[in-house]
Design a protein around this nucleic acid. Structure first.
Lengths: 140, 140
DNA sequence: TTCAATTTTGTATTGATTACAAATTTAATT
DNA sequence: AATTAAATTTGTAATCAATACAAAATTGAA
């Protein structure tokens, strides 16, 4: 299946009307698993799709995130990052080169004791690591 | 031990010269475990310390974070939050009321398989949950 | 084709954070 | 107490990601 067909399906599965721009943005995220910012998405797509506006990218990633068609990641203090991989996984960001790596989680057991008597309904979980990747490891 | 004495100690332990403003900000974070923003810290302290400037709050929390005297938390897309609790723990943010709760982690086992052959030196770990707290639970 | 609803655009605005140079404070030394 | 260099703080201006909003374009059902 071509990527754009997958993208369209993903959009429809999440109740989002598959306009051409939305498909293009979803496609981009499917093919570029680099956790890009909205700005990066815009800059990379704009040459190919001159009618695309930056606001549309912002609108679209917001909508995709709300409908859980993609993940929004808070690992970078400056910008919001986006990820088409909606499987359970964590992220690692290198403090030196800035690259964000996926970390597949086989198993995650968190046993926690709540502070008071609060009961929480958890809808989103985000696990982020920071440090140095192998190429940037200062002790190498 | 009075809080300000504790605060001073914390600063010294992390190689930070304990100026009055720095102690005041550290004190505030020790006493207000609400994960405030820089702006909130400034607005709460300014009436009592009229000579305090907003830039100093930003400078100070940045320094405190770099030296690991406090934690900087990315759970809120809009603002950076700060936490004087540097023990291992996670956070939960209610999507309705916005309150950020501490979640004490007794035990955390994450077994993960890396994507490629990358080896990471992990220096920081952040675990964030979102959802609804008991008072805001829509199914209550 | 018509027309209302949806999507997109482009500009203006917001708002958190940072840059930076001047002013102030600190603390060690005379 | 005075001197002085270093550290800290101030206050304004600038940056820049993200949003608001109204006009324009597009879509799709009737």
């Amino acid at each position: 299946m071509r990527t754009s067909a997958q993208s369209k399906k993903r959009l429809l599965n999440h109740g989002i009307r598959p306009s051409l721009h939305r498909i293009a943005i979803m496609d981009y995220l499917m093919l570029n698993r680099t956790h890009p910012t909205s700005d990066t998405i815009f800059n990379d797509l704009n040459p190919k799709i001159p009618t695309l506006s930056k606001t549309t990218v912002y609108n679209t990633v917001k909508l995709l995130t709300e409908r859980k068609a993609i993940l929004s990641i808070n690992i970078d203090e400056k910008n919001q990052r986006y990820d088409s991989n909606i499987e359970q996984h964590a992220h690692f960001r290198c403090k030196d080169c800035g690259v964000i790596y996926d970390i597949m989680i086989d198993e995650l057991h968190v046993s926690y004791s709540e502070k008071g008597t609060e009961k929480f309904v958890i809808t989103d979980t985000e696990i982020s690591y920071k440090g140095f990747c192998e190429p940037c490891n200062p002790s190498n």
